[in-house]
Simulated assay, not measured.
Amino acid sequence: MEMIKNTYRNQFIVMAILFIFILITFFLSLNLGHIKIAPLEVIQTLFGSGTSENKLVLFDFRLPRMVIALLIGAGLGISGAILQGVSQNGLADPGILGINAGAGLAVVIFIFFFQGSMTSLGTLSIFMMPIFALIGGVFAAFLIYTLAWKGGVTPTRLILVGIGINAAFGAGLIIFQLKMNPNDFMQATVWLSGSIWGANWKFVLTVLPWILILIPFTMYKASSLNVLNLGDEMATGLGVAVEKERRILLLTSVGLAGACVAVGGGISFLGLVAPHLARRLVGSKHQVLLPATALIGALLLLVADMIGRNLLAPSEIPVGLVVSALGAPYFIYLLIKVN
């Protein structure tokens, strides 16, 4: 009993520390940028007594961008945790398996046929983008599981098929990009690299409902993920409808990934790294793993965005490239460790 109490206490301490790190990083990110704002001026502006320039920079540019980074980081982290639990594969990630590419292709097709210009998105079309991304992500997931199924889905076959689907959708993206005008081509390229390009409150409202609905639903399904990790035979013996639960959770993962891709572009490896780090810190029980993953994902993307905005200022590095630079070595390490 004392050991269980200590475990819960340690898990609570870990998540409290993660939350504190998020607050510190959030405040630092408000200060840093091409236009630097002193900490005292940030506090004054947040309480309504700052200059008009500081209000414009903080409320119209930095705050919505940082809130989006937190939401996308949490969403992609949870999406990766679901995929790893459903597939019983520690290498699963929506970016690596091609789900992000499928969602991205659907969004680019939507922009290409219905908008004509990425700079002229109306309010209605902004809210339509996650729906198209969901359709593309579901189609990608369907292809992956259909092609990987051969009396079951093995981790190696899942990864190989996912990489192949990712490459196929990547080719489709290039085809549509080449048909765009030069300005739209460059914007699409930056976005697909993982750029939080929709840095305004409309895009926050676009992704927020998906996060507020799907993450709590995933928490509710945490016990199902725990049972699925025991294997299909054991889960069936415990009375769980394995295929039904797997489909529901997979659709939830795709929904989270699609909504995040619609706003943040193709950000890979975050859904891989965040669950692994959370598992090392708090263990594999999903009731604790999922909230820890959300916090780690949010923290990682917030830090990556801060690095991308400031490392080569006034130029900006897409946040997806920063995450890939940090996550790719960890992916290679996992491949070597698994095999």
Rank of each mutant, 00 (worst) to 15 (best):
G172A: 04
I174D: 10
I174S: 12
T156N: 04
A199V: 08
R280L: 12
I144D: 02
S195I: 00
G266P: 00
D184S: 11
R280V: 09
L214Q: 05
Q187S: 14
P182N: 12
L251I: 15
P209L: 10
K221L: 14
I215H: 02
M219I: 06
A141D: 06
N229T: 13
A274V: 02
L158H: 10
P182L: 09
R157F: 00
K221W: 04
A148V: 07
L214K: 01
V207T: 13
A188L: 11
K150E: 13
I211G: 00
D184M: 04
A274F: 07
T156I: 15
L173E: 07
I175D: 05
A140E: 04
I196P: 01
V263N: 11
S223T: 10
W210N: 09
G172Q: 06
Q187V: 09
A278E: 08
G255W: 13
I267N: 09
L214H: 07
V261S: 02
K221P: 00
G258M: 06
G239M: 04
G239Q: 06
P182H: 10
L205M: 09
T146I: 04
L250G: 15
A241K: 15
V190Q: 11
P209Y: 03
G266T: 01
V153F: 01
V227W: 00
G231D: 07
I215D: 07
I174F: 09
K202Y: 15
P275D: 03
Q187W: 01
V190M: 12
N229M: 15
H276D: 01
C260Q: 03
G258N: 06
T189I: 00
L160I: 12
A259E: 03
K244G: 00
L178Q: 13
G266V: 00
I215V: 14
N181A: 07
F203M: 14
A171F: 06
G264C: 05
P155K: 07
V261G: 03
L238D: 10
R247W: 08
D184W: 03
T146S: 14
F203C: 03
G162I: 15
W210A: 14
F203L: 13
V204T: 11
F269T: 04
T218G: 05
L272M: 04
F142C: 11
L228I: 07
G271C: 08
G170Y: 08
A278F: 04
